[in-house]
């Protein structure tokens, strides 16, 4: 928990818009609603993000990079 707090606001998530097929899988698993599906891209709010990496795990296209 301490580590997560420390990292708040420091984004470890990178969405590759060229790979993304805007299917919304990452949005559905994001526990903080930090990802919102627009029509043809995913909007990412790094202030809400807790760097849990769930979105990167979920993405069926492997379009999200999550580096610890």
């Amino acid at each position: 928990m301490f580590i997560i707090e420390e990292l708040k606001g420091v984004s470890l998530i990178k969405i590759d818009r060229h790979r993304c097929i805007y299917c919304g899988a990452c949005v559905g698993v994001c526990p903080k609603l930090a990802l919102i599906l627009k029509e043809t891209f995913v909007e990412y709010d790094e202030k809400k993000c807790i760097n849990c990496g769930m979105c990167a795990k979920a993405c069926p296209m492997k379009a999200i990079d999550f580096k610890k």
């Binding site: 899988a25 559905g28 698993v29 609603l33 599906l37 979920a58």
Partner: peptide
């Protein structure tokens, strides 16, 4: 759909878990 954003905006936790998805 799968994003289930509306329910969560309304305060219902409908987040999909990796285990059950």
């Amino acid at each position: 759909g799968g994003e289930s954003t509306i329910a969560r905006m309304a305060g219902i936790d409908s987040t999909a878990t990796l285990y059950d998805t």
